[in-house]
Design a protein around this nucleic acid. Structure first.
Length: 196
DNA sequence: TGGCCGATATGCT
DNA sequence: GCATATCGGCCAA
């Protein structure tokens, strides 16, 4: 019998996989919190590279990224913004930053939280995504699936791999993944197509 | 303690 | 394209 992929929500074991695998597999998944939902169109992977908070914030993020998987990791950046990650890789340090969603449900709530910006920009960028979903610092350290629901896509998706955004170290690693052709991916728009 | 630097977003030129 | 708000971590002193 044909089981429709996408019918079954992901479980905690999903996040125990290697970080890059999780970062790629999250593209196309539907993320929900309450009535708000969206398709994940952009992620970034962080492990023990020089740009990772596992290294640069070893005293705070290190514990979370290093020894766990499946936990929400929320941090603030440039004062006013929050970024939502999920810790990965049961065997080593890792986290995936959720950078952009294609809004699917709960648009009214998200518009209100985002102060009425145009729909395309509701979740286009990590700070915007966090604001639209009502992410708080208190979620950090909580089981990700206790706060969010995650459902895999029904079909294969076309991925693009490109350098991560906004970092000054380890720029050469193509660890930003996005849904090819999606207008909901943040700037700068990635170019290089991923093979395989 | 103080200074510096961000895994950013926004508004203005 | 560029300036800047805004604040938590981290490290030097």
């Amino acid at each position: 019998m044909t089981r429709r992929a996408g019918a079954r929500p992901l479980d905690a074991a999903f996040f125990a996989q290697p970080t890059l695998d999780v970062a790629r597999a999250l593209i196309g998944c539907t993320l929900r919190r309450g009535e708000c939902s969206g398709r994940i169109v952009e992620t970034e992977a962080y492990t023990d590279d020089e740009a990772s908070h596992f290294v640069t914030r070893a005293r705070s993020a290190g514990t979370l990224m290093g020894s766990t998987s499946g936990l929400a990791y929320v941090y603030s950046i440039y004062g006013a913004h929050l970024c939502l990650n999920v810790t990965t890789d049961a065997r080593g340090p890792g986290a995936v930053l959720l950078r952009a969603l294609e809004p699917l449900g709960g648009l009214e709530v998200m518009r209100r939280r985002r102060n009425g910006v145009r729909d395309r920009d509701l979740c286009r960028g990590p700070g915007r995504l966090a604001q639209a979903l009502g992410v708080t610092r208190a979620m950090s350290g909580e089981p990700f699936l206790g706060v969010f629901e995650l459902e895999p896509p029904g079909t294969r998706v076309a991925l693009i791999a490109s350098p991560r955004v906004g970092i000054s170290k380890a720029r050469e690693l193509p660890w930003r993944f996005s849904l090819s052709g999606s207008p909901f991916v943040s700037d700068p728009r990635p170019r290089a197509p991923e093979r395989g």
